[in-house]
């Protein structure tokens, strides 16, 4: 089986007047978790569905390991997908839902129970889908995606509805899968989760690429350096002691937010002025902040 690289080039989808995806080009590498981020209506789901040949692009192309999805000899063996609206027949049990897929793909039926066990649905697998909670539906979706032990995983908001334990389980699973050399492309709105999980991020807005790179280059790429938080009983004295480059704004909780100088400079100034310090931390810009700045003005549901 070839390398598992995803290549999207010049991909576009137009629905009447809406350019859902607009000339999007990017590559997703194997062995890494890539977060796919963007405001509501940015075109994430549309992009992923075009990648899986469920939606026909109006322009450009998307390939997995150099082939269109429909041209893969064993699609489920190569690619596993959990899509936003992936669903099962309400009156069918989760286990039977997987059996149907296994039969069509030619996988051994034993695989069904193994996957139910993997996602912790062994007892619930014999109950009807209509009684499943949101998190149980997501777990069934993951079991479905893992049936073929695929080289590439594509997940659209998989953490949606999972409990804290489930989110942690999913994080460990995806990290492990990437470590095994698989490609993991996952869309999400949970930015702190993505910061922990992802190696690379792709941010899109209005169907167009905003930025693409490792989490740290994207976060550090935004213009502002870190803010220093300082807490002291004698705020005015500390502010006066800081040098001219520093800008001081009072924080909402009584702490001072200092920009323009780093934490050691603030500490030294406090020592010189003989001011007591109760807290001194550098607040690193995080993915959430980078995301909001990069997509501000471009957000807005179309």
């Amino acid at each position: 089986m070839s390398d598992g690289q995803i290549v999207i080039s010049g991909l576009s989808k137009r629905y009447r007047s809406v350019r859902a995806v607009d000339n999007l080009s990017l590559t997703v590498e194997p062995g890494r978790v890539t977060g796919f981020l963007g405001p509501n209506g940015a075109g994430k789901t549309t992009t992923l569905r075009m990648l899986l040949d469920l939606v026909t692009p109006t322009g450009g192309s998307a390939t997995i390991s150099g082939r269109r999805y429909a041209d893969l000899t064993q699609p489920l063996r190569h690619v596993g997908a959990v899509l936003e609206a992936s669903s099962a027949h309400r009156g069918r049990t989760g286990r039977n839902h997987l059996r149907v897929i296994c039969a069509a793909a030619g996988f051994p039926p034993r695989r069904v129970d193994e996957m139910l066990h993997l996602v912790g649905l062994t007892p619930a697998g014999r109950r009807k889908f209509k009684g499943y909670s949101l998190g149980m539906r997501q777990r069934l979706g993951i079991a479905q995606a893992m049936l073929g032990d695929p080289k590439v995983l594509i997940l659209d908001e998989p953490a949606n509805g999972l409990d804290p334990e489930g989110i942690r389980w999913m994080r460990d699973l995806l990290t492990r899968l990437a470590e095994e050399g698989r490609t993991v492309l996952v869309s999400s709105h949970l930015l702190s989760e993505m910061q922990m999980l992802a190696d690379d991020v792709v941010i899109i807005a209005n169907g167009r690429l905003v930025t693409h790179g490792t989490v740290s280059t994207v976060v550090d790429g935004i213009a502002h350096p870190g803010t220093v938080r300082a807490r002291t009983p004698d705020a005015e004295k500390l502010a006066a002691a800081l040098d001219a480059d520093a800008t001081v704004t009072p924080g909402s909780d009584g702490a001072l937010l200092v920009t323009g100088v780093d934490a050691p400079a603030v500490g030294a100034a406090a020592l010189r002025a003989g001011v007591e310090l109760h807290e001194l931390v550098t607040e690193r810009p995080d993915l959430e902040r980078a995301f909001l700045e990069l997509t501000s003005g471009k957000a807005g549901v179309r």
Binding site: Y69, A70, L72, P75, S87, A88, A104, Q144
Partner: peptide
């Protein structure tokens, strides 16, 4: 109706 077309066509894209 049950949106199983996604799973069906992912399994058999032809």
């Amino acid at each position: 109706f049950h949106q199983t077309a996604t799973a069906t066509f992912l399994t058999t894209p032809r």
